[in-house]
Write a protein that binds this DNA or RNA. Structure first.
Lengths: 126, 126
DNA sequence: CGGCCCAGTTTCCTTGAAGTGACCGGCGGG
DNA sequence: CCCGCCGGTCACTTCAAGGAAACTGGGCCG
C-alpha cells in the first residue's frame, strides 16, 4: 500500500453518511490493511488527525482487540500497530460501505441540494 | 413487521462498534423496512428516542433522500414516512453490520474485558 | 367548556468527541 | 552544547449530538 497523503480526500465517503466506529477507526483499518505500520506512518495518510486523537483511536481499537500495539525498546522509539483477525474482519464491511458511497453519494448530494432552504432544522410549519 | 417494543435492546449491536450515520438512522431504516410508518408508529419500537431527536433524524434523512415524508391534511394530523430506493439500498449494509456484530461482538467484549485497567486513556508509559 | 389526539416545537442542559498548541525524555549526531 | 527524532502527553477550548420536560394548534368529541 502506498502512503498516498491524499488517500482520504476531505470529502471522505466513509464519513457521509456511514461511519465505522468513531470518526477515524475505519480509516485506520484501511491504513493497516497492507500490513503493520508505525505511528508516524499512520500520520502520513491521516494528516488531518492530530496525534492526540490518533492515539485515542488506536488505544480504543487496541482495547477492543482490533489492533495490536508493539513497542520496541529502541532509540528513537518504534511502535508498530497491526490488525488482528477481528480487525481484519471489518474490512469487508468497510469495503461494502465504500462501494455504497461510490455508487450513491452523488444521488445523496443531489437530494441534499434539492432540499436547500426547504424544511430547515426548525421548519416554520404553519 | 411487528412493532415489538424490544426490537432494539439497550445493547444494540449497531451502536458498538459500528454505526450507520447518526445514532438512530440505522434503526429508523430497519423500522421502515416493512413499509411506510407514521411518526407515532416509529416511536413505539424507538421508545428510547425523544420526539425531538426522532424529528431531527427524520428531517436529515429526508434531506438526504433516504426517506419521504407525506403529511396528510387531516385531523388529527397524519404524517407517513417511507423509505426511498436510496434508503432501501442501505439495508444490505445494515444487515452486514448486524451479522458482523452477531458473530464478533462477543470477541470484542472479551477483549475489552481483558484490557480493563491496562493502558487507560492516559497510560503511564515510563 | 374542557379535554384529547397527533405530530411535532421550544427551551434548557449535559456529555463527549475532537481540535489546538505546548511540552517531554532519552539518545545520537553535528 | 544543543538540536532533532519519535511517540506520544497535558491542559485547555470548542462544538454538536443528544436528552428532559413542558408546551402548541386546531379540530372533534362529550
Amino acid at each position: 500500500m502506498s502512503l498516498d497523503p491524499d488517500m482520504f480526500p476531505s470529502y471522505c465517503p466513509s464519513s457521509v453518511p456511514v461511519r465505522i466506529g468513531d470518526k477515524w477507526t475505519g480509516m485506520v483499518i484501511r491504513c493497516l490493511e497492507g500490513g503493520p505500520r508505525r505511528f508516524g506512518e499512520l500520520r502520513v495518510p491521516l494528516r488531518r488527525v492530530t496525534p492526540k486523537v490518533l492515539t485515542e483511536t488506536l488505544r480504543a481499537m487496541e482495547r477492543d482487540g482490533l489492533v495490536t500495539r508493539t513497542a520496541h525498546d529502541e532509540n528513537p522509539p518504534r511502535v508498530v500497530y497491526e490488525l488482528t483477525g477481528l480487525g481484519r474482519g471489518l474490512l469487508p464491511l468497510i469495503d461494502a460501505v465504500g462501494t455504497w458511497c461510490e455508487n450513491n453519494l452523488d444521488a445523496l448530494l443531489r437530494a441534499r441540494e434539492r432540499h436547500q432552504g426547504l424544511r430547515p432544522t426548525a421548519p416554520a410549519m404553519q
